[in-house]
Each structure stands twice: as C-alpha cells, then as structure tokens.
Design a protein around this nucleic acid. Structure first.
Lengths: 238, 238
DNA sequence: ATTACTATTTCCCGAGTAA
DNA sequence: TTTACTCGGGAAATAGTAA
C-alpha cells in the first residue's frame, strides 16, 4: 500500500537503523518480514544495491553486515532536500483579474474611524481612502481566492453606531503587481460574488498605475505550506 | 539513475509544483521529458495515481489539470517524516569492552594541574584521579571507536614543564553503563593500540560498580546525524 | 499538437530449492 | 538456520498508433 517499493524502500529502512553511521547486522528474512516482501526479493535487492554502489555488504560466516555508502547516503539526502523544499518553501498564490468601478462606497467605509483604526493597527499601514475592485478573470484565480479566504488571518471587526451596524471582514497581505504593499479584503456582507475581491493599499493604486476599468492587475500572496497541510488534516477532502 | 521510479516520482514532482495547493496544468509529454520516462508511461501512471486516489485529474478540452488529494499529500508527509527522523534523530554509538589494569599512570597524569584544570573546565566535572582502561571486544566497537575519535570535539592540550613535555588528547562525553557521566579519551601519544580507550569520570567507576579486570562495560555516545553527513561530504569514501 | 489504447518486450517478484 | 540460484508468471515500460 505504501508508495515506496524495492530498492528505495530498503535504503530508507537501513538508514532508519543508522546504517549510514555503522555496519548493521541483517538477515534477508528479517528484512523481508519488515518490508513485506519475500526473502528472495530482499536478497536480490541487496545484491542490486551493492552492485549499484548504494551499500556495502560484509559477509562473515552466516552473518551479513551492511552499511550505506556515500552514494547511498547522498541519494537519501537528495530526497530529504526535495521534500524539505516542498514542505518548507512558501507557496505563491497569484490572482489575476481586471479593475472595475464599483459604487465608490469603499472610500466612505475606510474613512470611518471604526474601520480606519483597525486597518491601520492590524495591517500596519495608513490606507488610501478607497478600495480597488478586481474581478478575477480565470477559474484558477477564483479557486485561489477561495483558498486565500481560508488563509486570511487578519480580522477587521464589525461595529455599530447610533444609525446602523457595519459588517466585518477578513483580509490577507499581498503584493500588488508584484511590488506594492496591499491587502486583499474578503468582506462579510457584500453584494459582490466570489469572482470579486477588494484591494486596500497605502497608495492610490488607480492613480499610481494609471489604471482604467478593464486593466489587468496581479495580486500575489506567499503562504506557508503548513497552511495547506493543517487545513487538509482538518477536513475530509478526498 | 535516481532511486525513485514510477508513481512516487510523479507525485513528488507534482508536489514541487505546489500541486497540493492548486491545480497544476500538465501534459504527459512534458512529464515524460522531465522524469525521463516515455509519454505512454506518464499517461499510464497518471491514470493509476488517479485510480488509487493520490491525485485528481480535470481534463478541459486538450488541457489537463492535476491536484494532489489528501491521500497523496499524506503519503508525501509520511515520507518526509521518515526522512526527518533519519536526519534529525541522534545516533547512539555504543562501545562494549572489558576492563583491564594499565600501569596505573592515569591517576598521575590527571592529577597534574596542566591536565586537571583543562578537564574540569572543558568537561564540566571534577575528574576522579584515575582512568579506567577498556579493551574493546568486537570489531564493531573498534569501528565505533574510530568514528568517535573523529567526532571527539573536546580538546585537551599538551604542555611542557621544566622536566618534560606532556602530550595532548581529544575526548567526547559519553554515558558509562548507560547512566554515569564520563568522557572517552583518545590520547595522542599512547602505548595502547586502537582497541583500547580510556575513560575519565567524576566517579571512581571501578569502586562504584565493583569492577574487576575482565568485567564488561558499555560506553554510549549520542551523535547528531549531521556529523556523519558533513563528514562524508568531506571525504572520498566509496 | 494532445491522451491513451493494444501489443511486445523487459523487468521484477517469489516459489522451489541448492549449498 | 543462512544466502542466493533458476525459472515461470505477471507487472511495468515502451513502440506503434488511433482518436
């Protein structure tokens, strides 16, 4: 059932017994039992590994001692490094979409002290008074958006005043066109569908980039791989 | 030439393109080229991986998008955890041997201030005035001894007085019979061969354990795996 | 260009068994 | 008990090719 078969399986097994540091005494039948293969196969694989320079065997009477060679160790190190890369390198999520004009109410909301102070404190910048509406142009971007909504770790809380209540939002820091600091907002009560995100930035992005409706923009977020794995373990996704 | 073949090779390759986080667009011929297999094999392996629940495939016209399933990710996590265990777990090196009486000069040397103060400072204990001579009883122990000599990271420097010069030594901290603090000494100018080590401890081990010549004792050292790998890369051991 | 079928070859596994 | 051979069945890889 395991993914690993044959030679690599034996090599890893031996390494788990520190066979990179010293000779380890083995028998082919013990190996076979542990790895759920036949004694014959264990024997053949050992011969093969030795022939290919991954291990050395020393046979003393009826006893066999094996040790990984430098090549065998390097093979495992390479694999370890690859997996470390996978599990430790940040994952870039990119949303591409096009600018469009909304009702212009973004500026009003951000200017409200109830939002403004939270944004300033939790995002660490003084927001430009306005949001940039972006309509995501591909299904990949929409998929990414749903992912980022789960990953969004900065919470802007709703509040009330004497007139009405104001909804909350979640957001995540991102790079605008690969350069500028910004945050992607996922607003709780919005009239937009999932193909739309709103961008808040310390800059007037529309002006800085001379953006017109329909212009393409890119939003990039770096996520730690652990996010995906923690997330996976919590769900019953198959 | 790589150790990995077939399914696991593809799975790791896909993970390197963050296919655990999002759908990745692939073609079987590009996969084949990258992994040095035939296009037909790539196609078959993808079908198999999907059938076995490691990936999902979404085919849109002529484009194929793949994504790892939870099961596929877990398989890689398992492998990663195993390799981490190998490369991060300390390796116990055990030397077994038998006590024997030397010339009794160990006590004299340790009592010399030139040695005593270094031992106290660098080993962090006040040594009992005497060394325990241990003759290693197996080739495995002798192999271990040679390894530990390389790993020995505490240096006791030689010195001179008006009468003569006194040689240096290297040593490494160890556990005596799995319990007591001690250090294994590798003395530069010694009349002993490689089958002999000398043990220094804060305790009178001979008395504490009622040791007679010929009694078996065990010396254990924990080494970080990185030691072996750094060591390997520096040598041309095959 | 794709993917993936069928046919053929090549390789691998393990039963039987010798030393 | 060991290890490791031969050999038959079957799985895996590729060539050829269809769609």
């Amino acid at each position: 059932m395991s993914l690993l078969k044959g030679r690599e399986n034996i090599l890893i097994f031996l390494a788990e017994y520190a066979a990179f540091a010293r000779e380890v005494k083995i028998t082919t039948s013990m190996l076979a039992k542990q790895l759920d293969i036949s004694q014959q196969t264990a024997s053949r694989l050992l011969i093969q590994l030795e022939k290919d320079g991954y291990i050395t065997r020393r046979i003393v009477g009826k006893e066999t001692y094996v040790k990984l060679t430098e090549r065998g160790v390097n093979e495992l190190i390479d694999l370890h490094v690859r997996l470390r890369g996978i599990f430790e390198r940040p994952v870039k999520i990119t949303l591409e979409g096009r600018v469009f004009s909304g009702l212009g109410e973004g500026a009003y909301y951000i200017s409200l002290p109830g939002y403004y102070s939270q944004i300033k404190e939790r995002l660490g910048f003084e927001p430009f008074l306005g949001t940039l509406n972006v309509r995501l142009s591909s299904s990949a971007a929409i998929e990414g958006r749903l992912l980022l909504e789960k990953a969004a770790d900065i919470v802007i809380e709703g509040f009330k005043d004497e007139k009405r209540s104001y909804g909350g939002a979640k957001c995540i820091k991102a790079a605008f066109n690969d350069i500028d600091e910004c945050a992607i907002f996922f607003i709780e009560r919005t009239h937009h569908d999932v193909s739309v995100v709103e961008v808040v930035s310390p800059y007037n992005l529309r002006e800085k980039y001379g953006l017109k409706d329909g212009d393409k923009v890119r939003l990039t977020v770096s996520l730690q791989p652990t996010f995906f794995f923690n997330n996976l373990l919590g769900t019953s996704n198959v």
